[in-house]
Design a protein around this nucleic acid. Sequence first.
DNA 1: CCTGAAATTCGGGGGGC
DNA 2: GCCCCCCGAATTTCAGG
Lengths: 151, 151
Amino acid sequence: MDRLDRKILSVLQQDARASLQDIGAAVGLSPSPCWARIRKMEEAGVIEGYTVRLNPLALGLADTVLVMVTLDSHSDNTLEKFGEVLASIPEVVEAHLVSGEYDYLLRVVVKDTRDYERLLRERLYKIKGIRHSQSSFVLRTLKKADLPLGV
Amino acid sequence: MDRLDRKILSVLQQDARASLQDIGAAVGLSPSPCWARIRKMEEAGVIEGYTVRLNPLALGLADTVLVMVTLDSHSDNTLEKFGEVLASIPEVVEAHLVSGEYDYLLRVVVKDTRDYERLLRERLYKIKGIRHSQSSFVLRTLKKADLPLGV
DNA sequence: CCTGAAATTCGGGGGGC
DNA sequence: GCCCCCCGAATTTCAGG
């Protein structure tokens, strides 16, 4: 992991479909060593995979909600059960155990507020062990950047 | 945007490097129409681009912090200025204007807690107009899923 | 709108420097 | 460890159904 590797990753973050020639030109190498470096980073687990950046709005997913959750009990059992339920809800795209005033932060993506109300009522409120939850709608996204690689 | 399109997107979300043959096999089409559909979705802005999934830990980025920010004034000027400053801080990878008890939620990625302390002291606390901020460290990520496409 | 084949470009892997 | 070249495979185009 030297400067060139980070530079390659930086290019791939912006466009994972860039050809090895383009990447080589951007970092100052020929395609072959670029390919070798990328492969090594894939094997090392630095690169976990390749994905597509989708526009949620264009897909009819207009609302993103951040849900802060506090649990009643912090037993291993409760935590595990909670994780399993979250895994089964496709609209929950992220779930983090966090420090601070509440226990979890979820990111939920839905079609509209009615959709969210239904999810809340039929899925989240049914989960045993939730002491409190607070929903916060994303009104506008000011920034959505790649990981800081320092290149 | 029919069911086949969503199925193609679902495959691409999991692996954007899948060949058109593989995609075709997964959705029940030959490579050509898959390519045509993908191209159309790129032009329609449904597909915004392709990127790489990186392992932050393997890159020495061990800590993710969620920062909840409340501003003093809600004038257009303050909001715009705040957005500009955030744009200039690489460690701030996401910034959302949100509804609820606070105004903004930032996602900050740093090397370690010392790095975060420095960022807080040298950059965030220097921003005029912040009334209050509260940091919440991500202790564990339970789920990180693709957008729900319903296929 | 899909199939199938043709041309072109690119990924993937050697040997020499 | 990088550059250059080769081969197989992929993308992309375009006929026809």
